[in-house]
C-alpha cells in the first residue's frame, strides 16, 4: 500500500482538534459561553449560515431561541444581516466556516461591517488545517486576507480557556472582530491564571535557548514541543500572540531580542500571516536572527485525516521538535 493510501488517523467531528488525547477538554466552549453571556447582555443576537451545529452555537439557540437566526446558506446575507442588526443596536455574533466568511463575504465584512465599526463578532469555524475536506474547507489564508481590512480586530485563541474569555471580551471590543474559533472537544491548555487581553501577546512558557512566537492552538503544540525538547537539553520559550491585529509589535520585539534563534508557528500559510508580521517587525527594527517558519506552504491541500495531513505538511509535533532541538 502506498503512503498516500495508508489509514492514518480517524474521522472526527467536523473541525475538531486532534490534540486532545490525555488532555482535559471542554465541549462547545464558544456556544456555552455565549449563551451565558447573553443572559447578562440582552443586546446580543446570534446568527449562522446553516452551520449552527458545526460552529457550536446551538447552546445559544437553545437558551435564547428568539435571538437566534439561521439565514441559510447565504454568507453574504449573514454578514449583511449582522451588520444591519448591529446598526439597530445589537451585538451580532455570527458563525459559519472561515472559508466562506473570508473568501465569499469579504466585501461585506470590509465595507458593511469594519468600515462602519459595526458591532459584529465573527466566530469563524475551521480556520487553518483543522479538517480533512480539502481546500474548499481549509481556511489557510484567512489571516492574510483579513489583515487587509482596516479597523478589523483578528484573534486566534489557543484553547478553551482563552476562547471563553474571548467570547466575553469581544462584546466590549469596539467594532468588528474576526475570531478563529475552535469547536467540539476543545482542549484546556492554558493555566487558570491566563488572562486574555486584546492586543497583548503573552509568554506561556519561559525558556533560555530558543524563542517560539506562535498563535492559535499552535501555541499549545509549541509548548508541548518545548516541554519535550527540555528533555533533550534545549530550553524554549513560547510567546503566544493571540491577537493578530492589532499586532503587539512591542512585546514581540522585546521577546525576540532575548534569543539567538527564533521559530514562528501558526495554523496558516507562512505567507501573509504571523510569520510575515514578525519578519516585517524584526527587519524594521534591525533585528536579524535565524528564524524558522512552521506553517503551511503556499498551496492547496489535499483531503485526508488530520494526522496524515499534519505530518505531510510538516506542522505536527515531530516537526516542532526538530525545529526547536535541531534548528532545522
Amino acid at each position: 500500500m502506498s503512503e498516500a493510501l495508508q489509514a492514518v488517523g480517524r474521522t472526527r467531528g467536523m473541525g475538531e482538534l486532534i490534540d486532545v488525547e490525555g488532555k482535559v477538554t471542554e465541549i462547545a466552549p464558544f456556544g456555552r459561553t455565549l449563551a451565558e453571556l447573553a443572559h447578562e447582555r440582552p443586546e446580543i443576537v446570534g446568527l449562522t449560515a446553516d452551520m449552527g451545529r458545526y460552529s457550536d452555537i446551538l447552546p445559544f439557540r437553545d437558551a435564547h431561541p428568539n435571538r437566534f437566526f439561521n439565514v441559510g446558506m447565504a454568507e453574504q446575507n449573514l454578514i449583511m444581516i449582522a451588520a444591519g442588526m448591529s446598526k439597530a443596536g445589537k451585538i451580532a455574533y455570527c458563525t459559519t466556516y472561515s472559508v466562506f466568511i473570508t473568501r465569499r463575504a469579504y466585501d461585506f465584512v470590509s465595507i458593511a461591517c469594519a468600515h462602519s465599526m459595526a458591532n459584529v463578532k465573527i466566530f469563524a469555524g475551521m480556520p487553518g488545517l483543522v479538517n480533512g475536506y480539502g481546500a474548499t474547507h481549509q481556511a489557510t489564508e484567512d489571516i492574510n486576507m483579513m489583515r487587509g481590512i482596516a479597523d478589523l480586530t483578528i484573534i486566534d485563541p489557543c484553547d478553551a480557556t482563552e476562547l471563553k474569555q474571548v467570547v466575553r471580551a469581544v462584546a466590549d471590543i469596539p467594532g468588528t472582530v474576526y475570531v478563529r474559533s475552535l469547536r467540539g472537544k476543545v482542549p484546556v491548555e492554558l493555566g487558570s491564571d491566563y488572562q486574555f487581553e486584546v492586543g497583548k501577546a503573552k509568554v506561556i512558557r519561559e525558556g533560555r535557548d530558543v524563542g517560539v512566537i506562535s498563535t492559535g492552538y499552535m501555541s499549545a503544540r509549541a509548548r508541548d514541543a518545548a516541554d519535550a525538547a527540555a528533555g533533550q537539553g534545549v530550553d524554549a520559550a513560547v510567546l503566544h500572540v493571540s491577537t493578530i491585529k492589532p499586532f503587539d509589535k512591542e512585546t514581540v520585539l522585546s521577546f525576540a531580542q532575548r534569543f539567538d534563534r527564533l521559530i514562528v508557528a501558526e495554523n496558516h500559510k507562512t505567507t501573509g500571516g504571523l510569520a510575515t508580521l514578525v519578519v516585517e517587525a524584526l527587519y524594521e527594527a534591525g533585528i536579524m536572527k535565524p528564524l524558522i517558519k512552521i506553517g503551511l506552504a503556499d498551496s492547496f491541500f489535499e483531503c485526508g485525516s488530520q494526522e496524515y495531513l499534519e505530518a505531510k505538511y510538516q506542522v505536527d509535533l515531530p516537526h516542532f521538535m526538530r525545529a526547536i532541538v535541531e534548528g532545522r
Partner: peptide, 30 residues
Amino acid sequence: DDIPGVEIVGGSLGHGLGQAVGMAMALKVD
C-alpha cells in the same frame, strides 16, 4: 455613514437590502 442621516456606507452595490433586513429583524426583536 459618518454623515448625519446616512445609515449605511453605500456604493459597493448589493450591500443595502441585506443590511435593511438585519435592521428590520432587530427592530422586530425589540
